[in-house]
Amino acid sequence: MRLLLLLLALWEVAGRVWPPGPLVPLPSAIVLDAASLLASGELFVHVLRSAVRVALGGGVGAGVGVLVGVALAAGGPGRLFDVPVALARPIPSLAWIPLTLLWFGVGEGQQIAILALATFGVVVAGTRDAIGAVPTAWLQAAENLGASRGARLGVRAQAALPGVLASVAEGFAAAWFVLVAAEFVSATEGLGVLVLAGRDLILPARTFVGAAGLAASAGLTAWALRALRGRLTRWA
């Protein structure tokens, strides 16, 4: 922490002594820009818009991801999903921009779709692996003690829960990761917009403010989901 502050201080001082021109912002400029956005209430709007998008996109992606992940782990006809998922996974979510534009048109839907795709890719694999990693010893013990098929499924679900929740958290992290790209095409408000505004308006300070906001939001989401997971799986 101290090293970071020291570097910022150096940056500031160096910038004042040798002004680098409008392309490289000083820490003071960044702070000022952030303050002005905060004061005008704009920052709040940007954060809120992005947060809602991530919540919706991540929610849909995680929900579908868990369902498909369960289907994949269940085997049998669920394995039919193997091929489409394997094909789609290596495709970066950003590459979906043209198709999503074509299908959802310009607007919130398209942005949320990109976020959902990013989350889905992570959650589906994580869920499938978590369910597959349940120790057979536990399932056999349950059967030995007389548990019915339904009860055994319950055992599998409980055992896989920590892993599934962890992959959901990773999924949301992935959503924040691609937010800038998701908002790239048509968003007018959002943290990604702030990041991009730096280039369009030649306001590099704003990019830093956006990036910092992004990092903070992603961190906060991760912390919240971790706390939730701790709550739900206190035994783990």
Binding site: W138, A141, E143, N144, V155, A159, W235
Partner: peptide, 19 residues
């Protein structure tokens, strides 16, 4: 088939951690 009339206990206790 597996049945509770023939119970197996191994070195790994295989307790259910959520219970």
């Amino acid at each position: 088939a597996i049945s509770p009339r023939r119970l197996l206990v191994s070195q790994d206790p295989a307790l259910f951690p959520w219970l």
